[in-house]
Design a protein around this nucleic acid. Sequence first.
DNA 1: AGTCGAAGCCAC
DNA 2: AAACGTGGCTTCGACT
Length: 561
Amino acid sequence: SALAALEGELATLVAERPVPAEDQLPGMGDEAPLRFAAYAGGAEVLEGEAGSLGELLAGWGSRPVVAHDWKSLAAAEDRCETPLLEHDTEVAAYLIDPARRGYPLAELIEETGLGATVKDGGEPAERAVLTRALAVRQRAILEELDLTRLLSEVELPLVEVLVEMERAGVKLDVETVRSIAARVGEQALALEREIWELAGEEFTIGSPQQLAPILFEKLGLSRKRRGKTGFSTDARVLHAIRGEHEIVPKIETWRELTKLKSTYLDAFPSLLGPDGRLHTTFQQTATATGRLSSTNPNLQNIPIRTELGREIRACFTAEAGHRLISADYSQVELRLLAHIAGEEVLKDIFRRGEDVHTATAAEILGGGRDSARTPDASQPHPDPGTRSKAKMVNYGIVYGLSAFGLADRLQIPHEEAQAFIDRYLERFPAVGRFIEATVEKAADDGFAATLHGRIRRIPELRARQRQTRLLGERLAVNMVIQGTAADIIKVAMVRCRAALREAGSSTRLVLQIHDELLFEAPESEVEEACEIVRREMAGAFEMDPPLEVDAGAGVNWLEAK
DNA sequence: AGTCGAAGCCAC
DNA sequence: AAACGTGGCTTCGACT
Ligand SMILES: Nc1nc2c(ncn2[C@H]2C[C@H](O)[C@@H](COP(=O)(O)OP(=O)(O)OP(=O)(O)O)O2)c(=O)[nH]1
Ligand SMILES: [Mn+2]
Ligand SMILES: [Mn+2]
């Protein structure tokens, strides 16, 4: 075909539907034709129209493709054979500078100083030429920054995996969602009346500007922090004053109920696809550290902490005859910290098979008689809420939590908080050295880097304001660890996809939640898929201590975890 | 009617 | 308010 015959290399494809099917799932059949243009560096730009991406690519041949934001194009179209992705100018721009707001093609072209006119060509033709020119420039920069392998071996192979995940979606038990929503709605209304009664007036509970004067002036409750507009009424403040007036716990509960109802219960039914499943969009170029994000809806922040939250999580189900498999790295960033910092005390804890979050839970929140004893492999089980709080403490301290911050979060005296932080850092002496070395190198280089070479510029380190520089120090340390964890799970995703395919498995990856992969597997494949996933995730990066994976299966997400 | 920032809060 | 980090979504209230 003409497409296959296009001369040159870095064959670049631009394709768009003139009336983009906004928020619409593929396969509706009423879309406008796909206008496309292709250019490979020769004398000719090819332009045309096709009914679908599949039809267009049928003439493409086996040549790899260059594009800008290939994932959006592919995910919006029906499943079809796609060529290898050789370069994506959006993803490349993200690797070069991941802290930017966005990567619109026009902006990248403009700032690179590129221009083109195509004789007798339309706008897509020009865009094909410019996209290719941008790709050429970027490839030189990527080479200089040592980002070529990260792009070609991790990010680009990941694109196809993400497209499959978005297409697959995840099943939602919408009937149960509706019934929980109805129940919670009634509870919230009842609470609202009680709150008004206790306040002596009707007001908008959801307005902190109206709530604050009632709590702190009318009822005279203790003020804690203040923000730009007045005294804070956030959850930590309410928790601290919950004993002062019976209205406070009611507001706390009202907040929890209405939050979960509006964000999840009410939102999901309208977001269901025709297949009865929720289809998120994974953003590959949104975070400064290399993590993915999830939008419309965000399926990376499904509740789990409270009882109602767990009910909501249980509404994420497997198709009949299937199971969900959840595979989550154990204490992943603490393990990475031990590895990167060479922290032998921390390594020892992992070697003994212990759980640092659990140990911290016992130590600071446990209160039990023998809970302060040196933890062993048979540590007592803290309740999930307590371990979760301990997790926040562990990562908080590593990433620069102050004694003020810890005292506020744990509701303890400053001195106690300071002592805990001091003791923590004394016990793991290599952590402090790692932090210092990381900050110094980042200040020197102007950027922090992950073990896979992903970089994040840290201009904050060169700011004149001390406060901003300290922020830069925390950003640098966090980038190294969180970013490496992000690299690792991306590698794992590509490995899992390949290994499942190799095994002839029809188990599908459906969600990524930062250090967790959620799969949907036919019942008969669950055991094999579990083992494959464990192996591929644990093997995604060799380190000391090794990565460990907690995997489980169930008919819903809650059971699987 | 839409946009914006602030506050707040869900998750990792 | 304070100096854990990474996100996205909802509500309110001011504004265009
Ligand atoms: N800075 C910071 N990072 C967090 C926080 N919560 C989670 N993370 C990061 C670090 C974790 O390794 C990573 C994955 O979260 P998880 O909930 O899976 O925790 P983790 O793997 O540490 O423990 P796990 O054994 O899975 O329960 O996300 C937090 O409160 N602060
Ligand atoms: Mn984990
Ligand atoms: Mn996790």
